[in-house]
Design a protein around this nucleic acid. Structure first.
Lengths: 195, 195
DNA sequence: GTCTATATTCCGATAGAC
DNA sequence: GTCTATCGGAATATAGAC
């Protein structure tokens, strides 16, 4: 039997609204209404709007960074597999959470104070491993470029979706197909495996 | 003699604060103070906060889309020159306006209503021209992919700057150097000119 | 055109009954 | 734990003097 506590209802409502509209534009009254309860319970469970927001953000950030996982720093995983893993994971994640990256990136640039020490655990152990793999393969590219290019090509269409659609480059109802097919191409754009 | 009217002072202040903090988090009092005037003048000139915001957003969007200019649809400009032109223009623009893309992309995804019909004039006349150029050069890539890849590789580092820096991939004081050098590489990543 | 003072609405948080 | 009613402050907008 699936029982959802009031606390969970509130956090889900907060998740939805914060992600959609950002911190400042989201009203605690709206969260309470969306959760089917009232304002007082929000403060009863979480103390303040800011507290609730931090809970949501930490979860979202974990979700976004987790998709990269520990794949990058594993020596036994080839470059191709690494790139494929990232594009696969992020495309799947972002198809399910389209507003996630722009939310994180925007709040990260707008509410800098609220994010201190959240991303500390993402330090790069992966970079030397990937540089070694690139050297062995004699590919003239740095790990830095490889990671950033993979993320750019995978995530940017989601981040810039409204712009891409309103500019007519891709139709709204073709978008899912577009990023799904694109997923397969990215590996070839990054490493020229077209021998 | 350079005379700045009060109206201009207000719009510059609004520009700065809206871009930095977004619509909801920006207070009209702060705009007035930043402009060196008072709250009443803001309403005297612009009627309301939302009105002022729309003025700023239209200008910013024009700036962002303008950087692509009419280069793309010009048949006499080669693919290489087109890609170089986009990376050059955007890198320069975004170095001067680091918060511009994330501001536009976020407000575009959050305040969808405010943007209707602003991007109508960006419809793609460029796509067929580029497709023709790609075919002539026998490059197995669509115009859609070429445009989106160029924009992805150029703009994403700016959009994801806080994440890139806090993850340790690039140091804060190396960022300018990083995107400047990157600019030169992008053309090679997109079209394999390394014969 | 510019400013001070104030009206008005909105919002986060809390008190207190059940 | 949950709710209604309300406090207190903040924010947008306006009135009216200069």
């Amino acid at each position: 039997m699936e029982t959802i506590t009031t606390e969970q209802k509130i956090i889900r409502a907060a998740d939805k609204l914060f992600t959609q509209k950002g911190y400042a534009a989201t009203k605690t009254r709206d969260i309470a209404e969306e959760a089917g309860t009232n304002l007082a319970l929000l403060n009863y469970y979480f103390g303040s709007k800011e507290n609730l927001y931090k809970k949501v953000v930490q979860e979202k950030l974990r979700l976004l960074l987790g998709a990269m996982g520990s794949v990058l720093s594993d020596e036994n995983i080839s470059l191709e597999e690494k790139i494929n893993s990232i594009t696969e994971n992020y495309t799947a994640l972002l198809l399910e959470n389209e507003e996630l990256p722009i939310f994180i990136l925007n709040e990260l640039s707008v509410n800098k104070e609220l994010f201190v020490n959240i991303t500390r655990n993402t330090r790069q152990i992966a970079q030397p491993v990937i540089d070694k793999q690139l050297k062995e393969r004699k590919l003239g590219m740095s790990a830095k470029d490889l990671i950033i290019n993979t993320l750019s090509l995978t995530m940017f269409p989601f981040v810039a979706k409204p712009l891409i659609i309103s500019s007519g480059l891709v139709n709204a109802d073709e978008f899912v197909e577009f990023v799904t097919k694109r997923k397969e191409k990215i590996i070839n754009w990054i490493i020229k495996t077209t021998k």
